[in-house]
């Protein structure tokens, strides 16, 4: 009996040790997990890697005066490309870094979901100026490119974006649910208020007490005042609608990035017959006097926060002269 028990035990040991031959048990096989479609497109680490690489390439493309068109188009798109394509003569000496990208940046948020286009929002500081960057990947086969760079206004802040793992949702420019107005309406209101002459210097949807708006309004008044009866001054804005981006903030508000083309038109009246340009303008225009008009084309890049309640506020802004026409 003892021997039989021993034999049974040996058989049992074989079954216990070798009998675990069912692959699922031995290997621990389980179905592969499925992707989370509602999470951020990247982990925080990957977003930093991609973000830094994209900004490195953008910096390379924007550094120097070589005007390498192909390199810029490979690294930049939309508002950032438009700014980088501004001719050197319009960029004041010592301000070439206005287009630059600091070497280190912090990722604020990445797109949510698995679709394209995808975005990375980041921020970086250079010479005491904090800037916001929007990187975009239009499709799976194209690398990320720098879409927008805008300097933040002094003292301005951006409410928190959703967590990096959660991802940031894009908002349609005409979506107004839960907001004082849609991003497009805010842009329209801002540009209308900053036009000259304007019907109203107030807006029910956007604050006009930011430093940028104050500067624009003051320069319009100065120009009109300086011309007096010798000339007329007109200032108009038109946004590059295809390049406007809006992202949902953690508190339900929206962060909007947009670029305007601004046109300043000065025309002498019959009384003046001609206008004498300042030495700076004369150098850019290639003539010191105009008899018909002088037209200045600017780029205005803006970052606007539309809060969950209350008026929108411009938190980042920059302007750059990009063309002059004098006759």
């Amino acid at each position: 009996m003892k021997r039989r028990a021993l034999a049974t035990a040996a058989l049992a040991s074989v079954l216990l040790a070798g009998g675990c031959g069912i692959p699922e048990n031995v290997v621990g096989l389980h179905p592969a997990p499925t992707e989370k479609a509602s999470a951020a497109v990247f982990s925080a680490t990957a977003a930093r890697q991609v973000g830094n690489r994209t900004l490195d390439v953008a910096r390379e493309a924007m550094t120097g005066n070589d005007k390498d068109v192909d390199a810029r188009k490979a690294a930049l798109v939309g508002p950032a490309l438009r700014l980088a394509e501004v001719k050197d003569k319009f960029v004041p000496e010592g301000q070439t870094d206005a287009f630059g990208v600091p070497p280190t940046s912090t990722v604020l948020g990445v797109s949510r979901g698995r679709d394209w286009p995808r975005y990375i929002l980041s921020t970086a500081q250079a010479d005491g100026v904090q800037s916001l960057y929007v990187l975009v990947q239009p499709d799976a086969k194209t690398p990320f490119k720098l879409q927008t760079r805008v300097a933040m206004q002094a003292g301005a802040s951006v409410p928190a974006l959703p967590g990096l793992a959660e991802g940031v949702e894009s908002v349609a420019v005409d979506a107004s649910a839960g907001l004082v107005a849609s991003p497009q309406k805010v842009l329209d209101a801002y540009s209308a208020a900053l036009a000259y002459p304007t019907k109203s210097r107030t807006s029910s949807v956007v604050n006009l007490d930011d430093a940028f708006a104050k500067g624009i309004l003051a320069s319009s008044a100065d120009a009109a005042h300086a011309l007096g009866k010798l000339g007329t001054f007109k200032r108009t804005h038109a946004d590059f609608a295809d390049d406007t981006l809006a992202f949902k903030l953690a508190d339900g508000g929206v962060l909007v990035f947009a670029q305007f083309g601004r046109r300043d038109l000065l025309e002498p009246t019959a009384k003046a017959k001609e206008l004498v340009l300042s030495s700076t303008l004369a150098k850019l225009a290639g003539r010191s006097k105009v008899t018909d008009h002088v037209q200045l084309d600017w780029l205005e890049t803006l970052a606007i926060v539309i809060p969950a309640s209350g008026k929108a506020t411009v938190v980042g802004a920059g302007e750059q002269l990009r063309g002059i026409d004098a006759k």
Binding site: A7, A10, L11, S13, V14, L16, A17, G18
Partner: peptide, 8 residues
């Protein structure tokens, strides 16, 4: 498997 199989 080796020990158990060998023992068995």
């Amino acid at each position: 498997l080796i020990v158990g199989g060998g023992g068995a």
